[in-house]
Amino acid sequence: MKVSVGDVVLPGDYCEEISPKDEKSRVVIGPGLRKEVDHVYITKAGILKKKNPHTYWIDSYQKRYVPIRGENVIGIVTQKAGDIFRVDIGGSTTAALSFLSFEGATKKNRPELQVGDIIYAKLVIASKDMEPELVCVDSFGHKGRLGVLNDGFMFKCPINLVRKILNPKCPLLDSLKNEWPFEMAAGMNGRIWIKANSMRESIALGNAILGAEFLSDSDIKKMCNNIAAILAGHVS
């Protein structure tokens, strides 16, 4: 079936809007789209989205992670093997993280990581034929926000929820940050790490994030107020 931008689409549909207007222009097609001879076909169920000038993708509900280069993910260290750590990032295979890809790490000065620790890292290699590789430094050798996440709590959620809360237009984090202090790291692999002063505040934060999944922007604000009220009611 022919579809256009903004529609709910199903695998097998095609979109004629996605085509270069002239010789020079380029079209970027993202997840859920595949170019065949005649048209661009849809391979996932979801909503067809467009970003000007020529970027198209499908916004779909998904829980399983497929590693993509450049994304920040949260992983669990599962093994120390030679000079690499094996990190479970929720993909089909574990990812590799070298001892040396930490800030200030040398052969002598190894980072202290235990099996079971969770790390926030960036994917530098993610090809379908190779093991994905992570780093905890940027190209200048600084760690930035990457590295080991201590304490707190990590939970899993659908990948589209992570995209939703990371969207700069989403009011969730803006409304929550005024209510109580917390730390948060959202991995694009559908894992969110949170840390607040007390257990109850952490639970409230997790509750707010998971509850925001199907709510509109105004409802999210209401929910945040509601949760803050519940939280305050108990503390007093």
């Binding site: 939970f155 998971l210 929910m223 939280l231």
Partner: peptide
């Protein structure tokens, strides 16, 4: 339809989605 009404795996004791 109301996918939001499902139980959340992390929830405060008094929180119900219907409150909103």
């Amino acid at each position: 339809q109301s996918l939001c009404a499902k139980d959340l795996c992390i929830r405060l004791k008094n929180f119900t989605i219907n409150d909103i």
